[in-house]
């Protein structure tokens, strides 16, 4: 999955990164978009933004990822950025149980502000800190199943599963979108309002036929 120029893509998907302060959202983003990690990163104020394009089913999918501040106080600002999001990574820190407890609130927040088709992945970050683990994989899995979200543990520091987590979310969004394109024919204007999915004017429908072969 090579890094490539930004200007050329078939699909543009808006994805948000949410979760408590200090769980590693910004480092997940920098690992995915620039392959960088910093132990000394600053807190995110308001929102920040980065992009990366990947291939899904021979299509170029460009992710426009909005990284949000974790502090509750900022939610009034950051929730405005949920609008139009078709994917979300809801991140907690596997070494701080309270960040997992708050996942439920984040999920509600997200569902209140986004389309019901949004693809959500629960992400347990800092999985490299094995001796400090405070949230079991089983608990997180059970929660994800109950809430009908995807789930993965990651380590932005060790670059573990970061690629997989984002790719999975983007692939799932792609499937949702191409399924919709199939249902509504090839009239992109018929897509539900409130989604900034930029459907290319090429053969959207034919892409759907290849779906299902690229899950992570």
């Amino acid at each position: 999955m090579a890094y490539r120029a930004d200007d050329d893509y078939d699909y543009l998907f808006k994805v948000v990164l949410i979760g408590d302060s200090g769980v590693g959202k910004s480092n997940l983003l920098s690992r995915f978009t620039r392959n960088e990690f910093s132990l000394e990163s600053k807190s995110t104020i308001g929102v920040e933004f980065a992009t990366r394009s990947i291939h899904v089913d021979e299509k170029i999918v460009k992710a426009q990822i909005w990284d949000t501040a974790g502090q509750e106080r900022y939610r009034a600002i950051t929730s405005a950025y949920y609008r139009g999001a078709v994917g979300a990574l809801l991140v907690y820190d596997v070494t701080r149980h309270v960040t997992f407890e708050n996942v439920e609130r984040w999920l509600k927040e997200l569902r209140d502000h986004t389309d019901s088709n949004i693809v959500i992945m629960l992400v347990g970050n800092k999985a490299d800190l094995r001796h400090l683990r405070a949230v079991s994989v089983e608990d997180a899995k059970a929660f994800a199943e109950r809430e009908n979200t995807f789930f993965m543990e990651t380590s932005a520091l060790e670059s573990m599963n970061v690629e997989n987590a984002f790719t999975e979310v983007l692939t799932q969004i792609y499937h949702v979108v191409s399924r919709k394109a199939l249902e509504v024919g090839d009239d992109p204007a018929a897509l539900p309002k409130g989604q900034t999915i930029n459907v290319g004017n090429k053969d959207d429908v034919s892409a759907v036929k290849k779906a299902g072969c690229c899950s992570a």
Binding site: S21, G22, E40, S41, K42, S43, Q71, V98
Partner: peptide
Amino acid sequence: LRQIAVDCPRTVPDVSFFQ
């Protein structure tokens, strides 16, 4: 207090004095 404790180590991290 927890939020402050999360942020203090992330304050101007590029100046080593604050570490």
